Amino acid sequence: MSNASATLTVWASAWLAGAAAPDDALDALTAWAPVQRVHAADPETAAQTGLPGPGAGTVGAAALFTTLRRSTAGGRAGSGAEVRLVLPVAGDVRGLPAGTSFARAALAAGEGVLVPDAGLGLVPAAEGEEALRWVVHSLPVDVPPAEHVGLAEAEHALRSAVRDSARALDELQVAREDATVRQRIAAALRATPQPEWPRGVPPRALRVLDQAQHVGAILEAAAQDTPGGAWSAAAADAREQLLRPLWTDVRTAQLAAVAESVRVLAAHPSQR
């Protein structure tokens, strides 16, 4: 359940608040791909940001950070700006500015970064294993306020999800019928990039992010059509009904952990 948008949200927030060095922020993104490519989604956004438009080439992540600084704070270090993670899926599009190209792209990707002060939204797309493309969208409408979920509340829900996801494996007979499921969960966790985080990120937030990643790996195993998976339409529907609320808990926990990290870093910019 870890993703590049969470990494960018935390590091961009820290950098805009003066709590992180730019080189450290750029290095953190390379955990997802060694090459970062950035361009605007359309000519209007290109004119607004100075980024290349579609078909006009790309620039590196340094230009993205510069664009955010210029768009939010006029280049003043330490001023900070709101940067927000979104993790939309069908049926759960909280936080998305409706009817925008960003909303459509973020829903398709399952992730994105909102910068309301700049009127911008960013969506990543992997290009093989070597490159990650960030497409920058302008937001012509007001961004709805963030839905606040406390970290303690999210952590409690996630602990329940840990227990429920273990039961889900048993009820779906995944663990019993597929002897490799535990190995697949461990392999998925090992394969997930582990970016560095800025100094000052609350340990509790990091713990919740780790728990969310682990539960997400369990749920992905439970969702696969293994020998213990769904054999019929009715079984597939039962599986979906069982796993959907657990996925919601995982996304909520990650959103809460990232939001708390952003809040703390913005409040204590001298930690760099």
Score class of each variant (00 low, 15 high):
1 M>D: 11
4 A>F: 04
8 L>P: 08
8 L>R: 10
10 V>T: 15
18 G>R: 07
18 G>M: 12
28 A>P: 03
30 T>C: 10
30 T>G: 07
36 Q>D: 11
36 Q>R: 09
40 A>S: 12
41 A>K: 06
42 D>W: 13
42 D>S: 11
43 P>I: 11
46 A>C: 09
48 Q>W: 11
51 L>K: 07
53 G>I: 13
56 A>L: 13
59 V>F: 07
61 A>C: 08
63 A>K: 15
73 A>G: 15
75 G>E: 06
76 R>E: 14
77 A>D: 13
79 S>P: 00
81 A>R: 03
84 R>W: 07
86 V>W: 02
89 V>M: 11
92 D>C: 01
95 G>Y: 01
98 A>L: 06
101 S>Q: 15
104 R>D: 12
107 L>S: 07
108 A>E: 15
109 A>E: 14
119 G>Q: 06
119 G>S: 07
120 L>W: 05
123 V>E: 10
125 A>I: 05
126 A>D: 11
126 A>F: 11
126 A>M: 12
129 E>Q: 13
131 A>V: 08
132 L>N: 03
132 L>E: 05
135 V>S: 14
139 L>Y: 06
144 P>C: 04
145 P>W: 05
147 E>K: 01
151 L>F: 12
153 E>Y: 03
153 E>P: 00
162 V>W: 09
165 S>F: 01
168 A>Q: 03
170 D>Y: 08
170 D>T: 14
172 L>H: 02
173 Q>H: 09
174 V>R: 07
175 A>N: 04
177 E>T: 03
178 D>S: 12
184 R>L: 08
185 I>R: 10
186 A>N: 04
188 A>V: 10
190 R>S: 10
196 E>K: 14
197 W>Q: 11
198 P>N: 06
198 P>W: 03
198 P>Q: 04
200 G>C: 06
201 V>I: 12
204 R>F: 10
206 L>V: 13
207 R>Y: 11
212 A>I: 05
213 Q>K: 04
213 Q>R: 13
214 H>L: 15
215 V>I: 08
218 I>R: 07
220 E>H: 12
220 E>P: 00
221 A>M: 02
221 A>P: 05
227 P>L: 15
230 A>I: 04
232 S>C: 10
233 A>H: 10
235 A>V: 09
236 A>L: 09
236 A>K: 15
240 E>H: 14
240 E>G: 05
240 E>Y: 14
241 Q>V: 07
244 R>T: 15
245 P>L: 01
248 T>G: 08
252 T>I: 00
252 T>L: 01
255 L>I: 08
256 A>T: 03
256 A>P: 01
258 V>K: 01
259 A>T: 03
260 E>D: 12
260 E>M: 09
260 E>R: 13
266 A>H: 09
269 P>D: 03
271 Q>D: 13
271 Q>E: 14
